[in-house]
């Protein structure tokens, strides 16, 4: 599990609750992270079958980053479609 996600979990849950997003889905979705940010992604089994022969990016459904000691959340064009409660 992503350590940053564990560290930020309660704030992410608060954000999801306030914005009617499915926290459980956020928690279980694939994650890709850097030093101070996490991207929550959506994947499907079928699209991945070609492995590294098809590097079409998996959609980012929520971006979470830490700036000046605070978490910032950025929704994408896919957020409501995949995460709306």
């Amino acid at each position: 599990m992503c350590k940053l996600f564990n560290q930020w979990e309660s704030e992410i849950k608060d954000y999801c609750n306030k914005n009617n997003l499915d926290f459980d889905k956020v928690k279980t979705s694939p994650k890709c992270w850097g030093k101070n940010d996490i991207w929550i992604q959506h994947t499907t089994g079928e699209k991945g079958q070609k492995g590294l022969l098809d590097e079409t990016p998996a959609p980012i459904i929520l971006m979470i980053s830490e700036k000046n000691g605070h978490l910032e959340f950025e929704q994408t064009e896919y957020t409501q479609h995949y995460l709306a409660v």
Binding site: P30, T43, K47, G48, L53, D54, T56, P57, A58
Partner: peptide
């Protein structure tokens, strides 16, 4: 950004 294929 990771791809579906990367995760697979």
């Amino acid at each position: 950004q990771a791809s579906d294929g990367d995760y697979a």
